[in-house]
Amino acid sequence: MSIVEFRNVTKTFGPVVVLREVDLNIDKGEVVVLIGPSGSGKSTLLRCINALEEINGGDLVVDNISVKAGRSQVRLIRQEAGMVFQQFNLFPQMTALENVAFGPRRVRGISRAEAEEQARALLAKVGLAERGHHYPAELSGGQQQRVAIARALAVKPKLMLFDEPTSALDPELRHEVLRVMQALAEEGMTMIVVTHEMAFARQVGTRLIFMEDGKISVDGKPADLLANPENPRLREFLQHVH
């Protein structure tokens, strides 16, 4: 059963066509790794799913709701599709615990005590049980990104979108974030991940999509594609990221 369905989706920024009639179905439980050259439209594709970008043509249905169904429906989609950003984007005036408790309190409307109880459990899950009272500025990049993952999970999404979650991190901090993501995938979370981490794609991904110039040009099993990339541009791309 599809949880995300792109039907002939087109996205333009002024005269620039960024997504060209994209068709894509993603099923529950899939871990889709999205790769492609800079500017090929990976972030835009991801941001259309939770309607941070408005599509210009076609239709896009997330958990049976169209992104074109109006504001209140879009908010429902966003609650079902958590997002993790390259730059973490934690709320700087709130502690880690308050960041994680924020969504349940203000979106789901549950009490502060209950929200913080859940937030503590989520922080423990991402390995930050001891850091709840720290402000984002007092945490390392890897810790901030794990708080950001916990913050997104707190709203209990059915789907998680990751836009280069480790690109802003020093190499030695990346694995702690990737490990959290791997654990999430093993629990059965549906995930769409833009990343250059090919080891993650191979070990955790169930599907690899290569984008070029606003189109999906290769779509298949990570193991097959990485071992034997038949598409010449994919082969060249992989040589650069390895």
């Binding site: 966003r78 924020f102 979106v107």
Partner: peptide, 20 residues
């Protein structure tokens, strides 16, 4: 990014402005 992070949680814009 803060506005986007707030919206991405499913908040209406006014709550993003008031709380974030």
């Amino acid at each position: 990014g803060l506005k986007e992070a707030g919206l991405a949680l499913g908040l209406p814009l006014w709550k993003v402005l008031v709380y974030i």
